[in-house]
Computed example of a mutant assay.
Amino acid sequence: MKGLDLERLRSYLGTGELTATMFAGGRSNLTYAVSDGTSRWVLRRPPLGHVLPTAHDMVREHKVLGALSAAGFPAPRPIRLCTDTDVIGAPFCLMEHVDGTIYRDPVPLEKLGPAIGGLVLSLVDTLADLHALDPDAIGLGDFGRPEGFNERQVRRWKKQLDASRSRDVPGIEELHARLAAEIPAGGPGSVVHGDFRLDNVLIGDELQVNAVLDWEMSTLGDPLSDVALMLVYAGRPLLDGRTPLSIPGHPGVDEMAARYAARSGRDVSDLHWYVGFAAFKLAVILEGVHYRFVQGQTLGEGFDTVGEMVAPLVARGHAALDGTLVEGN
């Protein structure tokens, strides 16, 4: 299987014959379901080819998963970290397999009916609960530096953009300049996920959050960055072009923000800069995916349209800075 040498992995694990399938939907790290016929695991490894500096860090993902799962937060329990690139060609993290449904298609969401509201608010509650954890108490006190987080993020994602250039993206330089001109200091720091959204969460039969996935961009920083990105994703098209916000029963962004504020006790009265930055960050991420696609370094389907998603995000970032929080609310 491309990206995963099953024979070498079998030898490394000391187990029987392995089978694997790659999870659909991923645009960054490659994720596989692996089984020896008795046990099931999930394996995560960096993408093929072009990898942005500081991204796709298996060591960090393994550390945060261990700390969060031990603290009782719904995150997969890590089983093994391998930094020996001779095994499968890249570092990887092996973790427990968690059952659940990932909602990335509007049709199953529609079928939930009024229950979609409870599901989305449960997602918001889970984010607030993450931000309520004391990093020092769970062993993540050295996981990042909350002070100056927003300023560093603006610099970092500009560097990531410069490292992923394969074409001109109108308006993206101007968006970065606007964001850099007025960076909020931010409040008390917390563990931040970095890519928090509905389709990065496994949902159980009772519509509870079984596990939050994809921790590769997690660190200590400004929790409002997670809130803003969650709101941007709520206004982004799903598989058939509709946004989650357009599905009947889905809470609006004002209700989502109010729910987060009530559970976390944090001030969310002005999220415009954060939403603008979230749109910029996501545009840079997708531009990096587009770069890998044009270089022939992606696996799976759906990458041919990623490049088309960048320009609307740039426009969304400018609109947020102009006063429109999220379209489609």
Rank of each mutant, 00 (worst) to 15 (best):
F23A: 05
L133P: 11
Y12N: 02
G139Q: 08
P106D: 06
A137K: 12
L52W: 02
D125W: 06
A71Y: 14
T31A: 05
L52Y: 01
G148I: 12
I102L: 04
L127N: 01
E96V: 03
T101R: 14
V98Q: 07
D105C: 06
G100T: 12
A33T: 06
T21M: 13
A55C: 05
L109A: 01
R45D: 09
V120Q: 00
C82V: 14
G26N: 09
E151P: 00
R145E: 13
P53F: 15
T83G: 02
D134W: 08
A128F: 09
L121F: 09
P91M: 06
P74C: 12
V98W: 09
N29A: 05
V124Q: 02
A90T: 12
G25K: 15
D136S: 11
H50K: 15
N29L: 09
A90G: 04
W41F: 03
S28W: 12
D36T: 11
H131S: 08
L68E: 04
G144C: 06
L121C: 01
L127H: 03
G37N: 12
R104V: 02
V64G: 00
Q153A: 05
E151H: 03
M58A: 09
L133W: 04
G25S: 15
V120A: 02
L123Y: 01
V87C: 03
A90S: 15
S39I: 04
R27S: 13
A24Y: 00
W41L: 11
L52N: 02
L112S: 01
T126S: 11
G26P: 01
H62N: 10
P46E: 04
G148C: 08
V59R: 14
A137W: 04
A55T: 07
E96Y: 01
T126D: 02
Q153I: 11
L68G: 03
R152V: 08
E17I: 14
L48Y: 07
L119P: 11
M95V: 11
L68C: 05
G16V: 14
G113H: 10
V42F: 05
H62P: 00
G113S: 06
S122Q: 05
A24F: 00
P74H: 09
A128N: 06
D99N: 13
L94D: 00
H131T: 14
A132C: 06
G89N: 12
R80K: 15
F143T: 04
L65M: 13
D125E: 12
G66Y: 13
W41K: 14
A24I: 12
V64W: 01
V124F: 08
P53A: 15
G117Q: 07
G66S: 10
S35W: 13
V98P: 10
V98L: 07
D142V: 09
A24E: 14
Y103V: 04
G14R: 08
P106C: 10
P78K: 06
G117H: 13
M22L: 14
E110Q: 07
T21D: 11
D136N: 09
A132H: 10
P47H: 14
C82N: 06
A70N: 08
V51T: 13
P46R: 10
